[in-house]
Design a protein around this nucleic acid. Sequence first.
DNA 1: TATATATTTTGACAATCGTCCAATAAAAAT
DNA 2: ATTTTTATTGGACGATTGTCAAAATATATA
Lengths: 215, 215
Amino acid sequence: MTEQLLERKSREEGAPKRGARPPIDKFNARRIELAEAALETLAEIGYARTSLREIAQKSEFSHGVLHYYFSDKFDLICCSVRYYKGKCVTRYDQITSTARSREELLDGFLSKLGETMRSEARMHRLWYDLRAQALFETAFRDDVTAIDKSLEDMVWRVVSRFSELGGKTPAMSPESLYAVFDGLFQKYLLRHLSGDAQAIPDLQAELRRLLPMIG
Amino acid sequence: MTEQLLERKSREEGAPKRGARPPIDKFNARRIELAEAALETLAEIGYARTSLREIAQKSEFSHGVLHYYFSDKFDLICCSVRYYKGKCVTRYDQITSTARSREELLDGFLSKLGETMRSEARMHRLWYDLRAQALFETAFRDDVTAIDKSLEDMVWRVVSRFSELGGKTPAMSPESLYAVFDGLFQKYLLRHLSGDAQAIPDLQAELRRLLPMIG
DNA sequence: TATATATTTTGACAATCGTCCAATAAAAAT
DNA sequence: ATTTTTATTGGACGATTGTCAAAATATATA
């Protein structure tokens, strides 16, 4: 399923022409494996300090293999970013579609939100890091913009459903709604990573106050 | 005036004991000069690619001098971050205190906002970069948190004054307010840097719609 | 002016970086 | 079983990194 998230650009040029038949996507499977190691590294030490050798060390291969599956470091990281996208955007869809009241949706959403920040804080800071890199590196911009849009849509599905359950309609535009969620999440993520045990409950309390006002 | 923004930690240990008398702060003045070169470099190529030699090249000194004024690379960048703070937080105070109507405040604020994004886009992306680095580097967290708070206060001064001029009070908490401004600004900054000429007017239009609803 | 101190330059260092390549191993094809 | 192709290794390269110290210069003190 996840294979679809990875492009096959690297086959066009330079990469080995593979027999078109049997393990047609063993190649892509390994690309994913290496992309996952790259994500792990990026989430742990950040973009600035991530090197190819560090990535290889997180995988079960040596550093030389990276240039067999990717044309360069950039290709690898872009591939990782695209792969990352699929792991985020459907996080709250289950709750959104099953909740039968505003309270149930709100509780489920906040619960999932807190759980996510607690268990995947490193992946989240990776996202903010990559988005900042896109402000400098042209090659990241399209992917980052696309992911941002996906997240905006995700927030919109939650909030508009929340409004719907109250017979209302959201009081803010989709982009402003995403902006406030994203901004709050980033702020409390920093507090959480700084060891503040109150960060997650405080974020949940803030959103519990906020949501009824805007949806 | 700006000298106050720089600490003198580096004098404590390792740094040369200077005659306590005449050019008591020629030392700090040079620190500022180098911190400005560092900011220039960070804004241009980002944290990940910023090296001490690049910074020195932006100044009128050679790379070796950096270790005369700073204990290490970290000390230099932290110093730059603190210095950066002073250049941001009073940007809208003039407008806030002189505007005599909601329309005047709104127009002035949006105008200044657009002008800022147009002329200082590089400095703004530097901020988002550094804030992301704080998610990984402990040493940045206190400074980043303090700057974030200053920006939150700044936004609050604008919005609460806007409400006041309408005989109202803001409909959102200071942190949520800042979150939505910050999130929108970051999003449109990326669009602006990507060459989208509509980014700034679109941001202004979005805020013009948003502000009357929340203040 | 002579001496001492403060500042700056320059070059070196060990480490690490992305990249590439010859070799080797594994797998597939014949 | 043999050949051909695919996959992986590990070392080498040139460039760049942060750091440091000796040498050279500038400035202040006597």
